[in-house]
């Protein structure tokens, strides 16, 4: 398969090692070559609210770094990074004035944006370049009988104008198809598109937790065995967040939360410890045992 620059971002390599390791294991199993680029830094997203221009330059710098290495494809497991890098990439490709201004400043660092890379989320790359069919063929342990609730994460889908080939943000299918490729049943549920609230956490924790709680309440009405997500921030809210919600909002939820590469890894027959499942904050042990017995 192909070769991709792996944009790990700031959060995942420090706080979501289970996501990082599972993505790499799955890539290895599917013959996808992920290249680590030491020069990659912050994608710019956190400073967008402070100063748009700073965000633009931070983001564009990463794109230049990849371009200068002759890399055509960047993939990232973080929806925040994917959204920001895609948005900036597209804006600079389409807007010559913006590009000129950015290049004037980046030239001081010896960089020039030329618009020669493409940015995608890891899951979208799996869907586009490997495809559900090939994944299904690679599955050694079909997860039949499991009901999995997909959580896409806002910036995986929106704003649609940020992406070169966006899917319908109201009826997204890619993650559901990827879940089905493992043999599991992808649940159709009403709260699928709810925002995790992660972006509000630094400003107002209670509001953020209430937003996350909303999804759990709705999922309680479904036969979901687990929630699957593809973003380190959504994981902060839904995986680590379940305990916080219990402490701060006095409402207990016990829904196992996994990253998609962990789910896929289990279906590909990769050892659960190698997929970092022992690092998940929600209790996934029973689910893993259940899968082992399948």
């Amino acid at each position: 398969m192909g070769e991709y620059a792996y944009f790990a971002g700031c959060t995942m390599p420090v706080r979501n090692l289970n996501y990082d390791v599972s993505m790499r294991k799955v890539a290895q199993a599917l013959d996808i070559n992920l290249l680590d680029i030491p020069e990659f830094g912050c994608c710019g997203y956190p400073l967008g609210a402070l100063d748009y221009h700073t965000m633009l330059l931070l983001s564009a710098r990463n794109l230049c770094v990849a371009e200068e290495k002759g890399i055509r494809e960047i993939v990232t497991g973080c929806t925040g990074c994917a959204g920001t890098l895609s948005k900036v990439n597209k804006a600079l490709k389409e807007n010559p004035q913006k590009r000129k201004k950015v290049n004037e400043e980046l030239s001081k660092l010896g960089h020039e944006f030329r618009g020669r890379t493409r940015v995608r989320h890891f899951a979208r790359m799996l869907y586009d370049d490997v495809g559900p069919q090939k994944i299904r063929a690679a599955v050694k342990k079909p997860l039949s009988g499991l009901n999995i609730a997909a959580h896409y994460g806002c910036h995986y889908l929106k704003p649609t104008e940020a992406f070169e080939n966006p899917e319908n943000p109201e009826r997204p299918v890619t993650l559901d198809r990827l879940i089905e490729a493992t043999g599991a049943n992808a649940l159709d549920y009403g709260a699928k598109l709810l925002c995790c609230g992660g972006d509000v956490l630094g400003i107002d924790e209670t509001t953020a937790l209430k937003m996350a709680r909303e999804k759990f309440r709705r999922l309680k009405e479904t036969p979901a065995d687990a929630m699957v997500l593809i973003c380190p921030f959504c994981a902060v809210m839904y995986d680590a967040g379940q305990k916080t919600i219990e402490v701060k909002l006095q409402e207990k939820f016990t829904l196992p939360v996994l990253y998609y590469p962990q789910l896929l890894g289990l279906a590909l027959g990769i050892d659960d410890k190698a997929l970092g499942l022992h690092l998940n904050r929600t209790r996934v042990k029973d689910l893993v045992e259940k899968i082992k017995k399948l």
Partner: peptide, 27 residues
């Protein structure tokens, strides 16, 4: 160290260019 335990590659921070951008924009 935590990364090494999981077989993940080491990360060496390279903050220079990010710092210079922040200086340029007065962030």
């Amino acid at each position: 160290e935590k990364r090494a335990k999981l077989g993940l590659p080491q990360i060496n921070e390279m903050p220079d260019e990010v710092r210079r951008i922040l200086e340029m924009t007065g962030a």
